[in-house]
Design a protein around this nucleic acid. Structure first.
Length: 600
RNA sequence: GAGGCCGUAGCUCAAUUGGCUAGAGUACCGGACUGUCGAUCCGGUGGUUGCGGGUUCGAACCCCGUCGGCCUCGCCA
């Protein structure tokens, strides 16, 4: 019963051999006499032929085969003959003439055909994920993911990195995202937190002298889901001692370069580096999509005296007027433009001013507000040509950037400014250390509280926190943040000052991060690192538009696994053991995974 | 927490302005057929139109609520 080959392996060279294959029935073609079976496994498809003259019993059994039954077949490899070759199959030059057939398992009618070219509802795919994963595309995604992990292991191992596992049952750190909590039975009333990342452990490993650490680590964050965000996700986590920014970035480049080489994707000799300020200025966002230009321009100075009251007022009150020039946008209809206006309105923009560029001057939209002089300046600022359209948002800088960044992204897609297989990488550096949190009325770490300020800014840490730069860096591909890291603080004094800046009292820091502060006092080397989002890397390598396509068992937007119906209600006895009582709001009824034991 | 799109046979979809017994392809079941490869041909089974309520002589279609999936904002150090 043991297989001799996979269903994707056999070629003309094996003709004459006797083989045994195991797999799933992809399709059956019963001609009354001869019966054909396409047998599929993860490697491919092989045609099997049953001839009624060989064995009537076996032929009858073959006629009963149906889609997705699991069978084992033995037989001789035979050439198909020139007019019978199937060029669509790698194994299309041969077929197996069966001399044995064993049905290992039958199958009910499958909820959907794994071979279908029709797009099956994701809900159905997730409920029957094992059927979905039989699809060659999904098999390829998972195998490419495994291959990418192998490259990560190999490159880092070659460079002397030590793989270390860190705990998943760890301590809650109230900074950052919401934690997943795990109740402790042995310590009633206490909870572990699942790690949002191994951040503190890897820093401790540097203090331990590990020098170069890595781990392909699972991370957990209890926040709302997106196409590129799952509550649990995987990071390639790296940390190094005695390094500066360029050393860490070089390691990340090396890993990504190898991954791209294996995936047939481009990776530049030199990855462009933008400062945070430059990214915000030109792209309106800290993860710029570099596949196309369409740069934003701040035209506040040009239009501040214009008769367009909105522009003048916004600039006068400290806002900005920023815009972009969409090449060929002159062809947009009123309806198109209304669509873009509604698009930016949903993002909070109060309006979208526009005008079309023609040979003689601006036309339509807000054209009448622009004097010939202003028109000339705008034309020059954008490098605008006849047939283009200018679009503007006037608002506070953050709001204008948010709307225009999204608009730029949409226009890039709508105008076909890039090809589907374009890859454009960049590093973004020189992030601010902190940003002002209006709601909480305090400074928040932009990266995390362990990121080192730039040494030249240290003396302004207390006097001008917003002006302090961080030794942080992000790597961005096609507008998706693939990873980020920083040089960390290794001085206990600096760490204490940063905690102070973030409003974390000495006492509170001791409770939450005492072990880190102790470690920093006991011979902590300078160190830094990075984390790469594995799911996102694989997503972009396979050209998927959601990480669910590269995660074997993902959760829905409501955090439910449709296959297992997790999360479920615990058995009351489990709660008792954990000294927990559920206090569920009356109007919130549990839906998934109703535990049949509960309520007993 | 908010906005948007969607939900009809196992699957993918259709159903004119609110109007006939809710159809088609595929899958499945039965039959025919000895070279197909998305086999073909003939016949058949299959429906709580997500769920609940309302309007109407009449609802897949309109209204309200609710559940679920997706996209986005907030959130994600």
């Amino acid at each position: 019963m043991k297989r001799t080959h996979s269903c994707g392996q056999l070629r003309a060279a094996e003709v004459g051999g006797h083989v045994r294959l195991c797999g799933w029935v992809r399709s059956y073609r019963d001609h009354g006499g001869v019966v054909f079976i396409d047998l599929r496994d993860r490697d491919g498809v092989t045609q099997v032929v049953f001839d009624p003259t060989d064995s009537p019993e076996r032929h009858e059994l073959a006629r009963s085969l149906r889609s997705e039954w699991v069978v084992s077949v033995a037989g001789k490899v035979r050439p198909r003959g020139p007019d019978r070759i199937n060029p669509k199959l790698p194994t299309g030059e041969i077929e197996i003439v069966a001399d044995d057939l064993v049905v290992l398992n039958k199958s009910d009618t499958v909820p959907f055909d794994p071979e279908t070219t029709e797009k099956v509802a994701e809900e159905t795919r997730l409920k029957y994920r094992y059927i979905d994963l039989r699809r060659p595309e999904m098999t390829r995604n998972l195998r490419l993911r495994a291959q990418i992990c192998q490259i990560m292991h190999r490159i880092l191992d070659e460079r002397g990195f030590v793989e270390v596992e860190t705990p998943n049952l760890t301590k809650s750190t109230p900074e950052g995202a919401r934690d997943f909590l795990v109740p402790s039975r042995l310590q009633p009333g206490c909870f572990y937190a699942l790690p949002q990342s191994p951040q503190l452990f890897k820093q401790i490993l540097m203090v331990a002298g590990l020098d170069k650490y890595y781990q392909i680590a699972r991370c957990f964050r209890d926040e709302d889901l997106r196409a590129d965000r799952q509550p649990e996700f995987t990071q390639l986590d790296v940390e190094m001692s005695f390094v500066v920014e360029a050393d860490v970035m070089e390691v990340a480049n090396a890993v990504l370069r190898e991954i791209c080489a294996a995936c047939g994707k481009p990776f530049p000799q030199e990855v462009p580096v933008l400062s945070y300020a430059q990214a915000i200025d030109q792209y309106g966002i800290d993860r710029p999509d570099m596949r196309f230009g369409l740069l934003l321009q701040d035209v506040s100075q040009i239009v501040k005296t214009s008769s367009f009251k909105v522009f003048a007022d916004v600039v006068a009150s400290g806002g900005v007027v920023k815009g972009l020039c969409a090449p060929g946008g002159g062809k947009f209809t009123r309806k198109d433009i209304d669509g873009y206006t509604a698009f930016v309105a949903e993002l909070g923009a109060k309006g979208l001013a526009w005008t079309k560029v023609e040979e003689g001057g601006f036309a339509l939209g807000s054209a009448k507000f622009f004097t010939p002089e202003v028109q000339a300046q705008l034309r020059q600022a954008f490098g605008a040509k006849a047939g283009d359209i200018l679009m503007f948002v006037a608002d506070k800088p953050a709001a204008a950037n948010k709307a225009l960044a999204a608009l730029r992204s949409k226009l890039g897609a709508d105008l076909g400014l890039y090809k589907s297989d374009d890859f454009a990488w960049c590093w973004v550096t020189q992030f601010p250390l902190v940003e002002w949190n209006k709601e909480e009325n305090r400074w928040d770490a932009m990266h995390h509280p362990f990121t080192s300020p730039r040494p030249e800014d240290l003396d302004r840490l207390e006097s001008d926190p917003g002006g302090v730069g961080a030794r942080a860096y992000d790597i961005v591909l096609n507008g998706t943040e693939l990873g980020g890291g920083s040089i960390r603080i290794h001085s206990p004094q600096v760490q204490q000052r940063v905690f102070g800046l973030l409003g974390i009292s000495e006492e509170s820091a001791r409770v939450k991060f005492g072990f880190l502060l102790d470690a920093l006092r006991l011979g902590a080397p300078p160190h830094g690192g990075i984390a790469l989002g594995l799911d996102r890397v694989v997503m972009l390598m396979v050209g998927a538009d959601s990480i669910r396509e590269v995660v074997a068992f993902p959760k829905t937007q409501r955090g439910i696994c449709l296959m297992t119906e997790a999360p479920g209600q615990p058995d009351p006895r489990q709660l008792q053991e954990l000294y927990l009582r559920v206090n569920r709001p009356q109007d919130k009824k549990p839906v998934p995974g109703e535990n049949p034991l509960s309520g007993q």
